[in-house]
Amino acid sequence: MGATFLKHDKSKVILMNKKYFKPWRFILPGLVLGLITLGVPIYQAFENSFYDIRLYRLGSEIFIGLENYMNLWNDPIFLIAIRVTLIFAVGCTVLSMLFGLIVAGFLSSENIRGTIKARFFMAFFIVPFVTTQVVTGVLGRLFIWDAEFGLVNYFLGLFGFGGVEWLTSSELALPVAIITNSWRLIPLALLVFYAALATIPESLIESSKIDGAGEFKIFTNVKLPMIKYHLIFVSLIIFTSAFREFDVIFSLTGRGPARSTNVLSLMVYQQGVSVGNMGYANAIAFTMFLIVAVITIVYMSIFKLGRVGT
């Protein structure tokens, strides 16, 4: 089908337009590269998980079937790690969504949204998001949450509290990790919610006002339902990104104290690289993949994400 043919019949152009592009020629290179960079590691993780592989005796792999998975099931450290990871991911999601909404709500209120003031605030509100994650963790560990010299205890001290052992207490370390990681994720929620709130037509808000609704009520009853899909999608992004978090926790708490912040990502590193039990580490990694896959697919089919209406 040549362009010369199309020249004569404009109505056919519109119908045939898309076939004319031969889209697969554009897709193929990326698809191949994507399948290699993602497919190879995932398949390797799957395959390795059925073997007993020791990093320091490579070449003497033994096929052991499902033994790695059986061991996982009976490994209390793994079961605790799953719990810690889920608490961490859910905690980060709740905190980020909540603060993202609150700040976006204030930033998009009358007299502020769309002004130079809003743009100034927004420019600085995204700073935590672009801050290198390991620096965030290290900064938290040495300068923010340090029991003796840290910023948080200094401010608490002004009010007569202080001396809290944030990072050396096995009860407080996980909440501290959640707060630190949320500091980094909140900008994402904030930014998307602010943009979404800005698209709500003014007339809708005006009419609610005439009905006598206060600003808070308008926010919860009119504006929030309008940005429902943004809330759902952002919560998925934040949950999965917290679920796989490694950098912040590695540099903030290591895995401790007493494995209280030993999330699955860190356990994979510790088992694989430090202990050298590669088969086991790959089994944990593949389990993580399955958990995320199930959550993502359930989420996406419930909320019909990633489907283009044709």
């Binding site: 390797q44 796989r244 699955l264 995320v292």
Partner: peptide, 10 residues
């Protein structure tokens, strides 16, 4: 949404 260790470890 894939966890990065699933790529890094293998």
């Amino acid at each position: 949404f894939i966890p990065y260790v699933v790529i890094a470890m293998p």
